[in-house]
């Protein structure tokens, strides 16, 4: 079941500007796939992935900031379309925001799952 959920999340992220969906929704759907693995297989399998995911969050934020500053330098406003093709900046922002929201929700759920299993 998990591959289908991940596939649907990636679809929502990639086709955000032309169909219902977007970065936030895609990220949360992706995270729900990981939460399914977390609930069914225990947290030891997901624990390896978590350390990388925390860095995804930082990378996503700095990428968005970098993109915004590039837009100011080149185009004059904060989020400007850099390339002449249509929708490239929107798709890029969608993917970055989706990865960032995915990382955030995964870190959050792993934290609460860990704290809930063995109360001190």
């Amino acid at each position: 079941m998990t591959p289908f959920i991940l596939m649907y999340g990636i679809y929502l992220m990639l086709f955000g500007p032309v169909s219902p969906g977007g970065g936030f929704q895609g990220g949360v759907v992706l995270a729900s796939g990981v939460i399914l693995v977390l609930v069914t297989h225990g947290r030891t399998k997901v624990k390896k992935l978590t350390n990388h995911v925390e860095s995804f969050d930082t990378i996503g934020t700095s990428l968005i900031l970098l993109f915004g500053i590039l837009g100011i330098l080149i185009g004059g406003s904060f989020f400007v379309n850099l390339t002449p093709y249509r929708m490239t900046s929107l798709v890029f922002l969608d993917i970055v925001v989706g990865i960032k929201v995915f990382a955030g929700v995964v870190v959050l759920s792993v934290f609460f799952f860990e704290q809930g299993v063995d109360p001190c």
Binding site: G22, F24, V101, V105, L108, F111, F112, Q115
Partner: peptide, 20 residues
């Protein structure tokens, strides 16, 4: 409201962690 939902999620998560 899309913005509001995400802010609500962040606030709730941080609050629950603090309550823990």
């Amino acid at each position: 409201m899309l913005t509001g939902i995400v802010v609500n999620l962040a606030t709730l998560a941080l609050g629950l962690a603090l309550v823990l």
